[in-house]
Design a protein around this nucleic acid. Structure first.
Lengths: 235, 235
DNA sequence: ATGCCCAATCTTGTATGCAAGAATGCTTCA
DNA sequence: TGAAGCATTCTTGCATACAAGATTGGGCAT
């Protein structure tokens, strides 16, 4: 045969440094996830298999398997015999998402207070204080990162693997929504206050209160998500 | 820009009888799910691709894609370069599962009472009465089926697509646990009573009460799951 | 006899070829 | 001129061939 493209193991130019070329479909899924979260592939984008193959330097098989993984995460929509499209993030969906994640984190709070150690409370309090500092300096990115880490830590402490994996599946979309949403000053200060109350509930190990505050925290946050998200001719 | 309507995938369960029911991988996934739920493939079973291909009459490609779907549902475990195995149903995991699904259905109840129509209440009441009949006749399979349909109907009425899809992802494992669990007479009558109370709460549109009853319903059911279900003697 | 190493075989991972269904554009008729 | 039917082309779905990693059994050395 002629000198077609030799082999793919030599890096077509993307991130190919990994000596251990672990499953290509896992790698493809991760790259796609990153591209979607970064906004490189906006919602509604049609993903054609062959195009992505060339872009990622792999064949159609791993790409197709990555599609299944991403579809299970709700990142993309699989249409019967048609193209795959990046899931749209319509504002009603954000509300639905917040309701579900709020319920999950409320459960996490209930479970966590039964298991949390003093060290872990100290750790979360530390994150909380750093978050307050970020708020004082109005460092939005750092604030959001610490915010995320606090929420994640509580979910992890719940020690419920089903809860953790379900939460992890949904949370990229929440982060995506947060990245879009403008944090207006009124909401920001309210969120900080709510977090302080949640920390108090955790310290006093009041699961019912923490659960209720968590749920309210999400519902309050929801009211401040801008109603945009354009292009939605939604239902 | 293209403003094409986003049509959600036309349902895995819409048309089942016609021989050409679309995608082979969907069909393969459904068959595998049934085989696992029925106990034909007990937990820990190694699934070799080629063997399943011959058994299902398809090639390896749709089988591999079905594997991804089932893995996302937690029905099977994908090991790196080794065989796929049917997920073991450890009893702690069942507890974790019930906690999460209980929280989700509690949320569904809260949302449903705000939206449910009189016709839908009548429909659920009808299912409930048929379930009572099945209980009177001790028709276990019919009872479980109606039970499942009632729960599913409430989740659907919540009209939260994120909640619905998350619930659908988790529920096969719940059904599997229910299929394994022996429904002992004491638990059975208690479950029927709990369902009656839940129906009353729905009729009176008391979301808080329905939510609480739903959660308790799951926690009570959990206590009667046999504490062993590993690689046991099966039926 | 036992433990280690190597090779044969099995199984999974990937690529590609082929067929069926869908979208699109063109032609034709009213 | 507009709409409908048809054909071309594109894209997905499926099957199979090939390659790489893993497991296991046997042989050899200590």
């Amino acid at each position: 045969m002629d000198d077609e493209e030799v082999m793919v193991d030599a890096a077509p130019g993307a991130v190919e440094n990994i000596p251990r070329r672990g499953r290509l479909h896992t790698q493809a899924a991760q790259q796609l996830r990153t591209m979607i979260l970064s906004g490189e592939l906006p919602p509604g984008t049609r993903l054609r298999e062959v195009q992505l193959c060339q872009q990622l330097g792999v064949s159609r098989t791993p790409v197709r398997e990555a599609f299944r993984t991403l579809a299970a995460e709700g990142m993309i929509d699989l249409l019967p015999n048609r193209s795959v499209i990046v899931a749209r993030l319509r504002s009603p969906d954000i509300g639905h998402l917040f309701e579900v994640v709020g319920a999950l984190e409320a459960l996490a709070g209930e479970l966590a207070v039964k298991l949390v150690t003093s060290e872990q409370i100290g750790e979360i309090a530390g994150l909380h204080n750093k978050m307050l500092e970020s708020y004082e300096k109005r460092e939005r990115a750092a604030y959001l990162d610490l915010n995320h880490r606090i929420h994640r830590r509580i979910v992890e402490i719940s020690a419920n693997p089903v809860l953790i994996s379900t939460w992890q599946t949904l949370i990229p979309r929440v982060e995506r929504a947060r990245a879009i949403a403008n944090l207006n000053p009124d909401r920001w200060v309210a969120a900080v206050y709510e977090h302080s109350r949640m920390l108090s509930a955790l310290v006093s190990r009041d699961g019912g209160l923490l659960s209720q505050l968590t749920r309210e925290h999400f519902m309050n946050g929801l009211r401040h998500i801008p109603q945009e998200s354009g292009s939605g001719q939604g239902t």
